[in-house]
Design a protein around this nucleic acid. Sequence first.
RNA 1: GUCCCCAUCGUCUAGAGGCCUAGGACCUCGCCCUUUCAAGGCGGCAACACGGGUUCGAAUCCCGUUGGGGACGCCA
Length: 466
Amino acid sequence: MHVVTRFAPSPTGALHLGSARTALFNWLFARHHHGTFLLRIEDTDRERSTETSVQAVFDGLKWLNLTWDQEVVFQFSRAAMHVTAAHQLVEKGKAYYCYATPEELDQMRAEAKAKGLPPRYNGLWRNRSPNEAPSGVRPVVRLKMPQQGATHVDDLVQGPVTVSNAQLDDMVLLRSDGTPTYMLSVVVDDHAMGITHVIRGDDHLTNTFRQLQLYEALGWTPPQFAHIPLIHGADGAKLSKRHGAVSVDSYRTLGYLPEAMCNCLLRLGWGHGDDEIIAREQAIAWFDIAHVGKAPARFELARLDHLNAHYMRAIPDAELAERLKPFLAISLNEKQHQRLLKSLPSLKQRTKTLIDLAKMATPYLTEAPLCYTTEALEVLYSPGNRAIIDGIFPLLAASTWTAVALETTLREFTEAKSIGFGKVAQLLRWALTGCKVSPGIFEVLEALGQSESLARLQSACDPKGG
RNA sequence: GUCCCCAUCGUCUAGAGGCCUAGGACCUCGCCCUUUCAAGGCGGCAACACGGGUUCGAAUCCCGUUGGGGACGCCA
């Protein structure tokens, strides 16, 4: 069987983490089975769909490297086909025109609720002739759902689930303006596009029963369903804006790598033994629906941080430098680029995001004289410390510029003067980077190069402040 | 309110009746390494929600309770 999956977001906002995971699972499932992964934009809600949101979906998927096969399908452009399907159902007596007004609907829901029943449409026009239609009311088309029995689904994740048909009311297929609803469009499109597996959030599980009835009425074989649990925030509720950054794009802006994001999303609700770091190819090889859990998972930033730190270290320095560039305040000249490359191996051990890395790399990219913080100035102004710098300066000026030679030079100096090596190293760190924390001091010296290092020491002896 | 789903360390999870005195990872704590901070290494803390069954044996199967979540639109 040739597997065909789809990711079908509605373009009504940024690409949500939960949606991204749904896309990932669909993509992985298709790739694992050498199948096809399709993208369909569900833009039938003309009020809320925006071009910006469509672009956000494209950008997000591309960033995550979730490439889709074939042309993007815009659902609204297929509306005519959906409408035709609805009209056929009316002709066959499987759907009907309903002239109930919004007020009437509100009332019947309120009444049902008062009786302890689920708030549903009561079938007011199910058996009435359109001849009785009130003038001036444009009707909707509703599906005639079975009122007896039950609807059953064998969900790939949720297992067998049955719902009494009494719980289901006659859903709207065509709005009063004649446009198709989501329920109609998904079914017609999934069928037309040959979707074999619908993998989506389990907030759609209850919709599935209605859709199954629609497949039945249309005489089509439904696809297989896999309803994956939602992603929750720290408080255990469905991840939403109030949990903070919730869009894929915001994590890109925050300096996370798509590799880390995908790995993180993958492990939310799916596992493979003790494996934690799972790169793309491995994920394709291992991914299966059978190991998708049924319980919702909470998204925690600490995990993403950890994975991001890992992937930053794993990426080759030249590539990391390229990815870092958008986060740098300045555009690099060749000299700065070389310095960045030299400093990256040790810098990337110390940071979790590209933003952190950019911040920590900055001292390497600027030119002497440095602008020191007051904290730095306090250290540098201290008379004893200035004497030390004065003592070191000529030694460094005469030294060979390799980490090994520099270490020998400095060790000899501290031993001769009986100063703790750590004290000198920390002082040099302040003078050379203006920071309290940096990679090993010899690495710093080497990455900066002799002339820049000496220039900085000089500026440290005559600090301007900043 | 009605229906549906879920339940292993704080978090993500492994676990398909004996391999479980429950494993890994994140977080956290301690130690080692050490010129700072990291990284790395070693170690500690920490969980089968509760109650009944079934079984020689249950984290695993069944029932109930509790707790959580989701869905109930002319949104998707």
